[in-house]
């Protein structure tokens, strides 16, 4: 019966080596995510997962669909270029359901930019609230959408 050209210990060794290689191959195929290496040495699906979140800020285009008259007013005056959501806050819920009203603006919103600060550029209009008509609200004199116009 011992007609095999190779000694049995060598056959066992070859079989073991093949088994190890096959096991490694199977483990590699099973454990590597399918999108791994799609763009580089990482999971390509991670990009889609990062992109899957829903935006919170709707963007100026969404505001323009209903409030185009107000946007046109702002575009003519010194506050041009400022996005609606800079002051009015993230408003995607309001875009989807107009009954959800945006936050109410206070003097603090004006002072975010217009409070006097030595690090601010001089061309920006700045005030000290205790010296500039203390006790009055900003909107009693100023029109936020048209800063050049006064009441």
């Amino acid at each position: 019966m011992n007609r095999s050209p190779l000694p049995p210990q060598l056959i066992r060794l070859v079989l073991l080596t093949v088994l190890i290689i096959v096991t490694y191959g199977i483990a590699r195929v099973v454990l590597t995510p399918l999108t791994f290496g799609q763009y580089g040495h990482y999971r390509g699906a991670a990009l889609q997962e990062a992109a899957a979140r829903k935006p919170v800020y709707a963007g100026a285009k969404a505001c323009d669909e209903c409030h185009d008259d107000t946007l046109a007013l702002v575009a003519k005056d010194r506050h041009k270029g400022i996005a609606c959501e800079s002051c009015h806050g993230p408003n995607r819920p309001h875009v989807r359901n107009p009954d959800i009203v945006p936050i109410k603006l206070t003097d603090q919103h004006c002072l975010r930019c217009h409070l006097s600060d030595p690090a601010r550029p001089v061309h920006l209009r700045q005030i000290q609230p205790q010296d500039h008509f203390p006790g009055d609200k900003c909107v009693e004199c100023h029109v936020a959408h048209q800063p050049n116009k006064s009441k």
Partner: peptide
Amino acid sequence: CTLCYHRITRGLQPACVEVCPTQ
């Protein structure tokens, strides 16, 4: 920071760019 990856892939600007009043 992801450069607001979920926004830029939809053609929007990152949130910080969107709201910056002075560009």
